[in-house]
């Protein structure tokens, strides 16, 4: 049975007009696009204000004056729009970058370097034949792909060992192919959610 919910009809309308772009650009699609951008911006502003109140103003009102510091730093970002004082905005940005790097770099070094090197440098022979094959592919793929990025010694690309970076390139191409296949699957899985919504929630064809 077709839905009688106005919200479902609005969602169905926007789903259909958003899909219409795949066939040709049209005024309905642009309407949907602008509506989405407007709604998203409105929501972001409301959440931003709520966050300032919750994590800034509440603390100040509770007798914690140190919370003025992030609020002032936040306001200083807007000096970017003043031609004379735009240099001031660099200070809050520097603060943000410093905090961001400081917080993430420790985890990044551990998870992206130490753990990855340890995971790559493991015995080639595993407990199962498939595991052994995987380990060999990881070993060969890592070494050959790394040689592809050696630019300081031209001989490795043109000499007798030129097949090594070539294998590395093929390995990377295979990885890009796999990543692209996953991307296609993701896009389809996003849209199939809308198809199920149209058929079930809107038209009531499926249950």
């Amino acid at each position: 049975m077709v839905s009688t919910d106005v919200g479902v009809w609005i969602a169905a309308f926007f789903t259909i007009v958003a899909t219409s772009y795949a066939f040709r650009d049209n005024i309905f699609f642009r309407f949907a696009e602008y509506t989405f951008i407007g709604a998203a911006a409105g929501h972001a502003i409301v959440m931003g204000v709520k966050n300032i109140i919750l994590y800034g103003w509440t603390h100040i009102a509770g007798g914690e004056p140190s919370y003025w510091i992030p609020i002032i730093l936040g306001i200083l970002i807007y000096t970017r729009y003043h031609p004379q004082y735009c240099w001031i905005y660099r200070y809050p940005i520097a603060f943000l970058v410093g905090i961001g790097v400081g917080i993430s770099i420790r985890g990044a070094i551990h998870a992206d370097f130490i753990k990855q090197i340890a995971a790559t440098a493991k015995p080639l022979i595993a407990t199962t034949p498939l595991g052994t094959l995987n380990n060999i592919i990881i070993f060969v793929g890592t070494i050959t792909a790394l040689t592809h990025f050696i630019f300081t010694y031209e001989g490795i690309h043109r000499g007798a060992a030129g097949w090594i970076p070539r294998i590395g390139r093929w390995m990377m191409l295979a990885a890009f192919g796999g990543a692209f296949g996953n991307t296609i699957m993701t896009k389809f899985s996003m849209y199939q959610g809308r198809i199920i919504f149209l058929l079930r929630d809107w038209l009531g064809i499926i249950h």
Partner: peptide, 21 residues
């Protein structure tokens, strides 16, 4: 970075297929 590397917690993650590689 934060839960596993910094605080040594057990972490499981769910994300889009395109992020998996």
């Amino acid at each position: 970075y934060q839960a596993y590397s910094r605080y040594k917690l057990t972490v499981v993650g769910g994300f889009l297929s395109m992020m998996t590689p």
